[in-house]
């Protein structure tokens, strides 16, 4: 699936998007899997309270299922307006 990163999450991970091969069942599983792969993910995902997540461009939470998901995005709380 495509995994996207925005703002300081993108800066810490070092890429704006990447294709990730995963069998993670939920967003939380994906976060754990990536964090175990490389230190930069562990650093970016260290404080989950500071992170927001969208699955297929809809805001959701870390318990959300990834069944059938094509795109997951991680970013800090939004600051529009």
């Amino acid at each position: 699936m495509q995994v996207l990163y925005f703002a300081w999450v993108r800066e810490r991970i070092g890429v704006p998007r990447e294709e990730v091969e995963t069998s993670a069942a939920t967003v939380a599983d994906l976060v754990e899997e990536l964090s175990a792969r490389e230190e930069r993910y562990a650093v970016a995902f260290a404080d989950r309270a500071a992170l927001r997540v969208a699955v297929d461009q809809t805001l959701t939470d870390f318990d959300a299922s990834l069944d059938g998901a094509r795109e997951v995005a991680f970013f800090p709380p939004m600051t529009g307006g």
Binding site: A54, P76, P77, M78, T79, G80, G81
Partner: peptide, 9 residues
Amino acid sequence: LKSRAPFWK
């Protein structure tokens, strides 16, 4: 819009 639209300043 301030906290639910995906913009970052």
